[in-house]
Design a protein around this nucleic acid. Structure first.
Lengths: 106, 106
DNA sequence: AGGATACGTGACCGTTTGGTCACATGTCAA
DNA sequence: TTGACATGTGACCAAACGGTCACGTATCCT
């Protein structure tokens, strides 16, 4: 499985995107803290965090008996650079074409 | 299921991303034409195209006995605007912070 | 020391997903 | 009009996924 695929798959679940949002608001939270924001058992949240870690979207650091979770925006940046960007360019050129057609009609 | 979720889920499969790439190269292809590029039966490809259509990433038009498929970059643009963009900003500011720290060390 | 706290593992289970197939419908062209 | 072609439907199956639970380990605090 390629890196991009891990990231795309990780982003495919709404609970995981919500976790990213939580960490976006405030970093360095523990598992129990994140769990308290979700209607789900600790184990479910743990599994999701695992997927996010494997994709590199979350980086965790042990501190005593706690595990602190941090957001890593770099995979999303890379995804954008080598995949999403080109489709946005097409969107832009599509808009430009439409603009030209409208002007030709006038 | 929200629109964003449909798009994320559609993008989560490598075969579907490959189909988008094919349509990005050249639009308006028929199902059989797309099938010939994949190691998969026609039915598998049909299912994937269905998912892409439901997410709005592909728009199809019937022409006689053929069905022509077109790429629609707008959902990706929207996804970027209201989701991916903010994580890229954090990436940018993280880079800026790193730069500052390096300069302070000098 | 010992109880409370925070996290981890493996098994388990229902649902979704990716893929195939038999069969059916609509369309073109001689 | 008949045969070849292009797409569609529903059933089916194995694998992956989302989620829970019983149990276990490490750490803190008094």
């Amino acid at each position: 499985m390629t890196d991009d695929d891990l990231v795309f798959k990780a982003l495919a679940d709404p609970t995981r995107r919500f976790l990213l949002d939580l960490l976006f608001q405030r970093d360095g939270r523990t598992l129990t803290e994140l769990e308290s924001e979700l209607e789900m058992t600790r184990f479910g949240v743990m599994k999701h965090l695992r997927v996010l870690e494997d994709a590199g979207l979350v980086i965790a650091r042990r501190s005593g008996r706690e595990k602190l979770h941090f957001l890593n925006p770099i995979p999303i940046q890379l995804l954008h650079d080598r995949w999403i960007g080109k489709y946005r360019e097409r969107y832009a050129s599509a808009l430009a074409n439409l603009k030209n057609e409208l002007e030709d009609m006038a």
